[in-house]
């Protein structure tokens, strides 16, 4: 399984991207192997969510290529893009449940849109997905009645409704209580292994990220500052990797936002 020459499920090569004049990514390379949980970690604002948008084809890189499941992703071709997206699931940070539909209908939504399953079979599939996340009993609730953790589990059930090969998680641990967080950590690992899926987890929670990841990328300003298995990174000597893994307030990523010398500003010489 883990042959070195096995083609990765997802491969990003030499990605350049920028929203403004300042480049967000320059020559970014990422490989996601089949069956693994790959964590992409980095501080807030380093473009982790943007990276997922690029993989999902919602944004277009200025340079470089993205290959997914043996095919090149081309956002300009809507048909091929949508065909590839059906093989991807995505869990959004805000859960992004459709607010006017019940839990059941939310999970049924992708099935109704993309398949012509008869109602009984559809109900079976939906209840099965809900059972996996432990929320079969909440099928008739509306999204507004759910807690944050439950909403995220429903969204997870929805994102795996079409049995995708790749599931992307955008900050799945943020804003959850310890119990819900534990549930989500367990679910990601279990779903990945039980359903034979491949997972990409984007997070800034080092502990949770490391606890489920098979392979970790650490994203800094514009480039990868480190990659490897959890053990490799924990023993890394790179000061940038060390600062992030240990959560040090000051280091290569400075504590202070760039500014003129404090004394100058206090004395009013630089206004």
């Amino acid at each position: 399984m883990n042959d070195a020459d096995e083609t990765p499920l997802l491969q990003l090569r030499g990605i350049d991207f920028s929203f403004t004049a300042r480049p967000l990514f320059e020559g970014l390379d990422i490989k996601v192997r089949r069956g693994q949980v790959t964590a992409i970690m980095g501080p807030s604002g380093c473009g982790k969510s943007t990276l997922l948008s690029l993989i999902g084809g919602r944004l277009r890189p200025a340079a470089g290529s993205i290959h997914f499941d043996g095919e090149e992703l081309r956002p300009s071709n809507r048909q091929s893009l949508y065909r590839m997206r059906r093989k991807m699931g995505m869990l959004f940070q805000s859960s992004a449940l459709l607010t006017d539909l019940s839990v059941f209908e939310n999970v049924a939504f992708p099935l109704r849109e993309h398949t012509a399953l008869p109602e009984e079979i559809l109900a079976m599939v939906v209840l099965m997905k809900l059972q996996m996340v432990g929320l079969r009993g909440a099928a008739s609730l509306m999204p507004a009645e759910l807690s944050g953790g439950m909403a995220r589990r429903v969204a997870l059930a929805r994102s795996i409704a079409l049995d995708p090969v790749l599931v992307m998680y955008d900050e799945p641990f943020t804003g959850l209580d310890p119990i819900s967080m534990g549930v989500v950590v367990k679910l990601i690992r279990e779903l990945n292994d039980a359903l034979g899926m491949t997972s990409v987890v984007v997070t800034h929670d080092v502990a949770e990220g490391c606890s489920i990841a098979d392979y970790v990328y650490i994203l800094g300003k514009g480039t990868m500052i480190g990659e490897g298995t959890v053990e490799e990174l924990q023993s890394s000597e790179d000061p940038r990797v060390r600062q992030f893994m240990d959560g040090l307030p000051d280091g290569p990523v400075a504590y202070h936002y760039p500014a003129a010398p404090f004394a100058d500003q206090l004395l009013g010489s630089d206004r």
Binding site: S53, G56, R58, R78, Y82, R83, R85, R86, M88, G89, M90, F92, Q93, S94, A96, L97, L98, T99, F109, P110, E113, H114, A155, R158, S159, L162
Partner: peptide, 13 residues
């Protein structure tokens, strides 16, 4: 609330 983005990612325009 990213519902539009979620639709796109579900391959729904």
């Amino acid at each position: 609330t990213e519902q539009l983005a979620a639709l796109e990612m579900m391959a729904v325009n």
